[in-house]
């Protein structure tokens, strides 16, 4: 019994042989449907902030520096590559590329920062409601937003009109520490 098992085991190992890939010697591209690093198309993005509202990792931040300028920042160091941002984007400005080789020694290399010039809506400044029929996904944060880009923190607070005080207050925002 012992011997037959061992013979079977030798055959089991011999048949497939060596299966280790010669990566990175040979490139091993990810399939087309792969959810890799998200890429923003700044021509299409209209700065609605829907991706920032729905990012489970909270790694997309939105900050209004003034009435006309909105900064969108994607912090790739925390991204979980779930692809939810690409799902909810109404303009298809986000695509999940198949780039998975994102290791780097400076996290700014995998950070995307867009400065968008915003036209002002006559009624509320920033009006956009996403997926109108979907109550569960309805846009929560509208108006002007003041996430802290320095400490990469999302601040769930908005104002209807641009408020320099709110901007100044969130600049001092700190994560809790011991």
């Amino acid at each position: 019994m012992w011997l037959t098992s061992k013979i079977k085991q030798i055959l089991m190992v011999m048949k497939p042989g060596i299966v280790t890939l010669d990566y990175p010697g040979q490139p091993a591209p990810a399939p087309a449907a792969f959810r890799g690093q998200p890429v923003w198309d700044h021509h299409k993005c209209l700065g609605c902030g829907g991706c920032a509202n729905h990012c489970p990792a909270r790694c997309i931040l939105t900050r209004d520096v003034c009435q006309e300028l909105r900064v969108m920042l994607y912090d790739g160091s925390r991204c979980t590559y779930c692809g939810r941002c690409a799902d909810v984007c109404p303009e298809d400005a986000i695509t999940m590329s198949n780039n998975f080789q994102t290791a780097c020694d400076d996290k700014n290399d995998i950070t995307t920062r867009m400065e968008l010039f915003m036209l002002t809506c006559q009624r509320c400044g920033r009006c956009y409601e996403m997926e109108k029929t979907n109550v569960i996904d309805r846009m929560e944060l509208r108006g002007f937003r003041y996430d802290n880009l320095e400490s990469r923190a999302l601040i769930r607070q908005t104002t209807d009109t641009f408020s320099p005080e709110a901007l100044a207050a969130t600049e001092h925002h700190q994560r809790p520490s011991r």
Partner: peptide, 19 residues
């Protein structure tokens, strides 16, 4: 990877269906 876009943490399930 071909089916869901990732080797693990498939990200297929949402409330209301699948992606």
């Amino acid at each position: 990877e071909r089916l869901t876009g990732n080797r693990k943490t498939y990200g297929m399930v949402l409330i209301g269906g699948v992606r």
